[in-house]
Amino acid sequence: MSDKELQVRGKQEAPADREQTRPGPVFMPAVDIFESGDVITLLADVPGVSSDRINIDVREDQLTITAEIDPQKSEEERYLLHEYETGMYQRAFSLSDRVDQSKISATMKDGVLRLDLPKAEKAKPRRIEVKTD
């Protein structure tokens, strides 16, 4: 066990920049984004989302993640305690580098999405030789 205890952090609602077809809250998933060498990796917490209901869209330098959730509670159930809300997830990022769209890989495990976005050839850092005469 680590010493650090997890704290409650309310789910962040996404800015309503576009209208949803279905009413209900839209949340911003917490993410980690890091890069190592030629790959930008994004990890997003999307609990309650099955892998077939997540949509990843990359165009130009904009990455958008949208995920729909399956209802957790059945119709017959009655709430006794309601501490968190559920709703779809949406978040968009601008990418600093061009991404090779054909090589993007996405995996889901325990409600965490992992996206590996390989940088496009021309975005890879190039060492520029300085020549001397």
């Binding site: 997890l6 952090r9 993410v31």
Partner: peptide
């Protein structure tokens, strides 16, 4: 190198 680190670990 991290761009964003929002997810937390802990018990």
């Amino acid at each position: 190198s991290y761009h964003r680190r929002e997810r937390e670990s802990g018990s």
